[in-house]
């Protein structure tokens, strides 16, 4: 088991945002968390990556209890997150953003940059450009490339398709498949349930802070409940 989340409760002040949810991610899987706005998907990711901490429950990553570990220590353990809204460093160049992605490494091998540029040729063209001048799709690619620079064992993506044109959404999901094929385990949070269920081995459906359903991507894509609520069927 790569990641295990057991019965976590997360609060924003008095608001009980995550109500005792449990799930797990096996090595080599793509697992999706889907659900409507405010269901608690992003909060779950933030709690795993140490930006927030649960009041109760336990999070285990590669056999180590990381429930209360400071967030900045997690990338060195093999956990990377592409946050919601990309959050790239807009005033730094594309190269500097990638260097920051490799911050935990003492010396960055040049192949690591080549590897990112192989996935995202467009970033190579714009390597010395200030990141704030990139288009939305390019910024998403930079955010993903930046996360790749730390050689994560588990990559968590928060709404990678948000605000992108359909053709770019397609491209981003192809790259997620590429990452996965290269051996990275992926935890994906998406509102675009259709796309997410297509790539996911397994998925969990969140509803107001609890897990309402779970199953393989295929099962959920065919379930009537899901079709009605999320797939417009």
């Amino acid at each position: 088991m790569m990641l295990t989340v057991e019965n976590i409760d997360v609060f924003y002040g008095a608001i009980h945002a995550i109500k005792g949810i449990s799930f797990d991610v096996n090595e080599g899987e793509i697992v999706a968390l889907i659900g409507a706005n405010g269901a608690g998907k992003s909060t779950t990711l933030k709690t795993i990556s140490g930006i927030m901490h649960p009041r109760n429950g336990k999070i285990t990553f590669l056999g180590e209890d990381i429930t209360h570990t400071d967030g900045y220590k997690l990338p060195a353990k093999g956990l990377a997150q592409v946050p919601e809204g990309r959050r790239i460093f807009l005033q730094m160049t594309v190269m500097e953003n990638l260097e920051m992605g490799a911050y935990i490494q003492k010396k960055v091998p040049p192949e690591d940059f080549d590897n990112v540029f192989a996935h995202f040729p467009r970033l190579k063209e714009r390597r010395s450009q200030i990141a704030g001048t990139l288009s939305g799709g390019e910024q998403q690619m930079l955010a993903m490339g930046r996360a790749l620079m730390s050689h994560p064992k588990l990559l968590m993506l928060d709404e990678p398709s948000m605000g992108l044109a359909p053709i770019l959404v397609e491209e981003i999901f192809n790259i997620i498949r590429e990452f996965h094929a290269a051996g990275t385990t992926i935890l994906l949070v998406e509102q675009n349930a259709e796309m997410a269920l297509q790539v996911a081995d397994r998925a969990y459906v969140l509803e107001s802070g609890t897990i309402a359903l779970s199953g393989t991507g295929k099962e959920l894509a065919e379930s009537d409940e899901i079709k009605k609520a999320y797939l417009g069927g």
């Binding site: 967030g71 220590k73 997150q81 946050p83 959050r87 005033q91 992605g101 911050y103 935990i104 730390s150």
Partner: peptide
């Protein structure tokens, strides 16, 4: 620029 994102890079803010 962004403390949260810096922390995700492994930077001790």
């Amino acid at each position: 620029e962004d403390k949260g994102a810096a922390q995700l890079m492994g930077i001790n803010v």
